[in-house]
């Protein structure tokens, strides 16, 4: 089973990299970009065929390693 985990910074956490990308887009002439927040994507292949099991395993992976829940949120998507 294939899954995608998206890790993003929590709102309220400053994102200097996102700000720099925002500035870069403005410099390229993209008008109307209100804000950019950057994050990470993990594509994970799991042995299980059960979506609930996969979601539970991925949530544990996020809590233990993939995300730093002090500053980051995660979202799990079964593909």
């Amino acid at each position: 089973m294939k899954a995608r985990v998206t890790v993003t910074l929590k709102s309220g956490v400053l994102d200097p990299q996102g700000k720099a990308i925002e500035g870069g887009l403005a410099a390229l002439g993209f008008a109307g970009v209100d804000s950019v927040r950057q994050g990470k994507v993990f594509d994970v292949e799991l042995a299980t065929a059960n979506a609930d099991t996969a979601k539970a395993e991925l949530a544990e992976m996020c809590e233990k390693l993939l995300a730093n829940t002090v500053i980051e949120n995660y979202a799990i998507e079964i593909l």
Partner: peptide, 17 residues
């Protein structure tokens, strides 16, 4: 130490990048 939870908070990218 912050990643293990022995200390609170996190060390993020420097503001000046």
């Amino acid at each position: 130490l912050t990643e293990t939870g022995l200390l609170p908070g996190a060390l993020m990218r420097n503001a000046g990048l």
